[in-house]
């Protein structure tokens, strides 16, 4: 089994895994970083979203062999204490209900806001539409992104 050196949340890890193992399962099963979720396995729901060099990516479709040179950020590494403006806005707006999709939502939103710190509502909807929330907190998610944007700008 090949070994891979990964940089996750600023820390270095060496994992032994098949080359095509999705980063999602390396995070969850090898590194026990379970904040990143399995929701569909085919890149359709967004629950597994992480940052690769700051950009939102689906970890369920990303093989571990492709990320050795990237800086991986997961929900656990977004902030030390839940103080990232997106996380703060998320709590205030009651975006999480069951909470399961929220790590993916937050990682998508934080990457999006870095590129577009003052988006319109339409842009928010477009950016967030690939993240399914079965509790259907969509209107609150939209509000939370707008709230975070105000804090960031």
């Amino acid at each position: 089994m090949p070994e891979y050196n990964l940089n996750v949340n600023g820390q270095s890890f060496t994992v032994e895994a098949a080359a095509d193992t999705p980063v999602l399962w390396v995070l969850r099963d090898h590194l026990r970083l379970v904040g990143t979720k399995y929701g569909c396995g085919i890149g359709q729901c967004g629950a597994c979203t992480i940052h690769l060099d700051g950009k939102a990516q689906r970890s369920c479709l990303t093989p571990v062999s492709s990320v050795e040179n990237a800086k991986i950020t997961t929900i656990e590494g977004l902030s030390e204490d839940g103080s990232h403006p997106v996380q703060v806005a998320w709590k205030e707006a009651d975006a999480p209900q069951c909470g399961y999709c929220q790590a993916g939502q937050i990682m998508t939103a934080s990457s999006f806001l870095r590129e577009n710190p003052a988006p319109s509502n339409e842009e928010i909807r477009k950016a967030m539409h690939g993240n399914i929330c079965r509790c259907a907190a969509y209107n609150r998610i939209e509000k939370a992104v707008a709230m975070a944007s105000e804090k960031l700008t």
């Binding site: 379970v34 979720k37 656990e76 996380q87 009651d94 999480p96």
Partner: peptide
């Protein structure tokens, strides 16, 4: 009032069934 488990849910620390090890 804000959800009392909100923090756990936005930081990835809320653990679901398949995440206990």
């Amino acid at each position: 009032k804000n959800r009392v488990d909100g923090r756990d849910k936005v930081t990835g620390t809320a653990k679901y069934t398949a995440e206990f090890h």
